[in-house]
Amino acid sequence: MTTTDTDTTAETPLAPRVTEEELARQARRKELTSRWFWRILSYVAVLAVWEFALLDIFGFLRGTPLDPKLLPGPSEVVATFFEIWGEGTMPAAFQATLTRIAIGFGLSFLIGAMIGILMQSKWFEGFFKDAVLISLSAPGLIWVLITAIIFGNRPLGPTIAIILTTFALVTVNVSEGIRALPKDLIDMAKSFQVSVFKRNRQIVIPHLAPYLFTGLRFGFSIAWKVTVLTEVFSSSEGIGFEMRISAVLFDMSEFLTWILAFFFFALFLEKVVLEAIERRYFRWRQAVTAT
C-alpha cells in the first residue's frame, strides 16, 4: 500500500491538475447549493414568523389580541395533518377531487383540441373566436357560481365548470401548433415517399406534442383550482368540501391542514409528475439547449 502511494506521488510531483470541466462542475454545484440554501431559508423564515410572531403581529394590527384558536401555528397544523391522515379522510377526499378533474379536464382537452382543429377553417374560426376569448379572460368563479346554481351538487356541475374554464387554453395551443406545422419536413417526407401514417406519427404528433403539453399543464393547473372552488360551493365530498366544513366550524387548524395538503399535492404534480413527463418526451429539446 505504502509503496504504491509513494509511487504515485513520485510520478506526479505537482498537485493533481484540475480540468476545466471539473472546475465548471464545481461552480455549478456551488451555484445549486446556494440557490437551494436561499430557497430553504425562505421556508424556515416564513414558518418561524408564523409559529412565533404572527399571532402578535395580527393582534397588534387588529387593536385587540387574536384568539390563538383562529391562527394555529405550523406545529399544530402539522400535528392535525397526521391526525386527519390517520383517520383516512384525506385519500378519499383527494380521490373525489382528482376523479372530478380527470373527467372534467379529460373532456375539456378533447373538446378544446377538436375546436382547435376546426378553427383552421376561416368560418369556424369566426364562430369560435369570441367564445375562446371569453373563456380565457372570464374569472373561473363566474362559471363555478353559475353551475352551482343550475346543477346544485350534481357531478355535472364541476365537469361543466372545468370545461368552460379550460377548453380555450387547449384550443389556443393546438391551433397555434397546427399553424406552425413544419411544411418543409412534411414536403421532405413526401418526396421520400413516406406514408401518410408514418408522416403523422413521426412529424405531426411530435411537432404538436409540446403545444399539447403546454395546454395540458396550464389547463390542469386551472382545472385543479376550479374543481376545489366548485367543491367549496356545491359538493358533499372532496378537498374543497372539507375546507368548507372546517371553515364553517371555525376549525382553523383543520382548514390550514387541507390547504397544506392541497399545496403539497400541487407541488408534487408539478415537480415530480409533469417534469418527469417533460424529461421523458422532450429529451431532444434538452439536448439542443445543452449545446
Binding site: 418543409d184 417526407a189 413521426q202 412529424i203 411530435p206 431532444w284
Partner: peptide, 19 residues
C-alpha cells in the same frame, strides 16, 4: 435540400430510418 430538413426530435440514425 438547401436546408438539411431533419426531424429535430429523432436521432441521426432514426432520421435515416425514417425514409
Amino acid at each position: 435540400f438547401q436546408a438539411a430538413r431533419l426531424l429535430p426530435w429523432r436521432t441521426v440514425t432514426d432520421n435515416l430510418m425514417f425514409v
